[in-house]
Design a binder for these strands. Structure first.
Lengths: 233, 233
DNA sequence: ATCCAGGTTTGCGTTTCGACAAATTTTGAA
DNA sequence: TTCAAAATTTGTCGAAACGCAAACCTGGAT
């Protein structure tokens, strides 16, 4: 276990409002770990032994159905908590978490959850805000799936990824981790074929530029128009 | 404000584990109210002034999209908390809540949220468990919408309603509040026409029996088979 | 530099389901 | 009882998107 400098984490949302010395204690309880790309951090159904904070990288949270279909629940960006089953009173993880790139992850034993939240209510409050935001997000996605067509959903997914994790380049905004057509189809409930067709079409119109596992958003506002459902008709 | 007897609520999940006298205090802070069918309890976007416990009845939680489409987020049954925006750090309600039948509702001023959770951590924990369960539920619904066909989703929705709120009758299990084809379509992301066709077909096969705003599940296991996707092929 | 596996594109037939339309039934109110 | 509004049923048509198949890139490994 390596010692972490408090200054590395003092700014990130889950720890906002916690005093420096308390934060030091919190960190002393954590384990820091490098996770290489494509490694599984925890698995669906596995007993929830720990909860996590992503210090660096991107993590994909994936649900697998009984007949093997995969659905991407969300991408975690650095600074976010994940695998917080204990906060929700769950005994086991409800999804797989896989490193989308090489990552650095902090983890705490789940058994500490109660201790920590009792001692640091600010942390608890922050966490529940996160949970609230995710519930919101999930509800919004349900609405989206129920009311919007595939084209809109894919446009939306690409835009969200670009906003959440995009790096500015001279061509536009590049999603800064490798993401395949398949991945996007698993975020939007469609097939990789349909996603491929859409991206090709958009590329022809100059809205995006994409290569293998790379997507750059060029005309975000036009994508937003598509996402809103005013594609042409 | 009428005084409530503690024994009326001591058994319901959100209050499990709270001592009688504390519960009395909690109740003394609440307002009890009768809400008649089709009345709106709170509206999407409205400032979250209160949080609620449904003592009796059924409440429909509905999201409305910018272009007027409605999506039913969930049905609340008696004994459940709802409108708990404060628990999630939200300033306003993210959906409408409408009484599906005549209801009895307890409400607390949102400003008491912090006080209450600090004084009664058990209540807080219970609440977060609820939130966790709902997040789970939402995620599952996303997976369902992403991977299953309309027929499966509708079968699932009917089954869930029957399990959650069904009353045993001599014909089968009757969903015990009025629910239209339109409602079911708004739970499953389809149209009332498609729902109508499905219910008609199932009625012909003897799986369900339905009248205007009434559905009785007769052969639940067969419905479950459809929900699992083994309809025929 | 070459090769190969995984990722992507594209075509085509098929299915599912939504859109529109119209008839019919049901229920509650006058 | 009669009537009107709301809910439901049913038919037809067409579009959206999936499944399957095959070809084609592309970039990393050797």
């Amino acid at each position: 276990m390596s010692l972490l400098d408090v200054s590395l984490v003092i700014d990130i949302p889950p720890f906002r409002g916690i005093e420096r010395e308390n934060l030091a204690e919190l960190l002393s309880w954590a384990r820091s770990e490098r996770v290489e790309k494509d490694r599984t951090i925890f698995s669906q159904g596995e007993e929830a032994h720990s909860f996590f904070l992503l210090l660096d990288g991107h993590v994909r949270v994936v649900k697998v159905t009984p007949d093997g279909d995969q659905v991407i629940a969300r991408y975690i960006s650095s600074g976010e908590l994940f695998g917080i089953a204990q906060a929700l009173g769950l005994g086991s993880y409800p999804a797989n978490a896989v490193a989308a790139v090489d990552c650095v992850v902090l983890s705490w034993p789940g058994s500490l959850w109660t201790t920590i939240t009792e001692k640091y209510p600010t942390f608890a409050t922050n966490t529940y805000k996160t949970v609230g935001a995710r519930l919101q997000d999930a509800q919004d996605r349900i609405v989206e799936m129920a009311t919007e067509r595939v084209e809109q959903r894919v446009a939306n997914a690409v835009l969200k990824l670009a906003n959440q994790t995009g790096k500015k380049t001279d061509e536009g905004i590049l999603i800064d981790f490798p993401i395949s057509r398949q991945d996007i189809s698993e975020m939007t409930g469609t097939t990789l074929h349909t996603v491929s067709r859409l991206l090709s079409a958009w590329e022809n119109e100059g809205l995006v530029k994409s290569r293998r596992k790379k997507i750059t958003v060029i005309e975000g506002h036009k994508l937003a128009v598509i996402a809103a459902g005013n594609s042409d008709k």
